[in-house]
Simulated scan of single mutants.
Amino acid sequence: MGKKSKRNTPKPNSNRAEKLAERRAAQEQASTAVVRPFEGLAAECDLVAMREFVPTATAPLTLRDGNRLLNLATVLPGAVAALVRSEDDVPTGYIAVQVQAEPADPAVGFGFSAQWATTVEPGESLNSAPLDAVTPTFADIVDADAVLDITVHKDFNWWIPEGVAPDAEVAATVERANQAIMPSARLDGLNAAWWVDAGDKAHLRWVRPEGEDDLMLALARLHAAGKLNLGEGSRFAGSFRTHGLLVPVFDLDNERHASEWTPAATELGERLVEALAIDTPLTSEERRSRDGIRSRQVTLR
């Protein structure tokens, strides 16, 4: 027998070997990633929204114990995991859901950040959350039954504490971040229904708490009946799945303000609830709708 060809074997320490090692590490992390990390939290859907597509927002967190003020934030300066600063001479912590170093289990990463932010002194920041076997989860630190009272900001000026004059570099960083913002709003009275103005059109991205299979059937029933929309000036654009949840997306007329879509979105939510209660098999037309929706579906995480 001839010798085995080494043509496709990368040389040690070569660029190709390094890229292959990075790819294997990414595949291993993906295989161990938790599918639905925030399951069981009342704020699950809004947590997913803030993590995936809300640009600039904050929300106070209700802790299981401890009296330090702690806030959730979409993103912090430098994409750090957490920081603590003094506000009115009170130590106030912030933990970010959009971070540069992504943990395999976000719930554990947030748990470490939250615990860290309740113990260090103002002026400290945490670049990433190192995880180990004893790292608490987010649900260990915060009240799992508490919903988020979210403040959606128009810009990132809240990065600069009130009364503090930023230096030129910090001001430039905030200005660059502000220029990248797409206006967003959370529709009143609806769980995790988010409007965003993307420029040429607006979108509704609605993070739903139902199981993916059940929600897919409900979407198919409404689509087949011509009821999967928010009325004139809207159309169902597709859906994506992230963190174990399904997110239907609708294109909207951007000439209308976010609040103008609330009544139609409320009605759509009621139609979805009714469709979710139906347990009969799909009709042939509903199956075609389901297959069409699935063909346009993408997975983010």
Rank of each mutant, 00 (worst) to 15 (best):
T58H: 03
G40D: 02
A57E: 04
K154P: 00
V247A: 03
L222C: 07
V247F: 04
D140N: 07
I95V: 12
V170N: 02
P106W: 08
A177F: 03
R7Q: 12
G238A: 10
R64Q: 12
A117D: 02
A114E: 03
P55V: 07
L282M: 07
A225E: 14
A177R: 11
Q297W: 04
R301P: 01
A21D: 13
F112S: 00
T92A: 02
H153C: 01
L245A: 12
P263T: 09
A168S: 09
L63D: 03
E212G: 10
A43P: 00
R288F: 02
V99S: 03
H203W: 15
P91F: 01
D149P: 00
A265W: 13
E286M: 09
G244M: 04
H257I: 11
A192Y: 08
L76P: 07
F236Q: 13
P281Y: 11
V273M: 05
N71A: 05
S86D: 10
Q29R: 15
M182Q: 07
M50H: 02
R23K: 10
P248N: 13
T32P: 00
E18Y: 09
K19T: 11
T92E: 01
N67P: 00
R85H: 12
P136T: 03
F236P: 13
A264R: 12
K201W: 15
N67Y: 01
R16F: 06
R68F: 03
K19S: 05
P161C: 08
E124F: 10
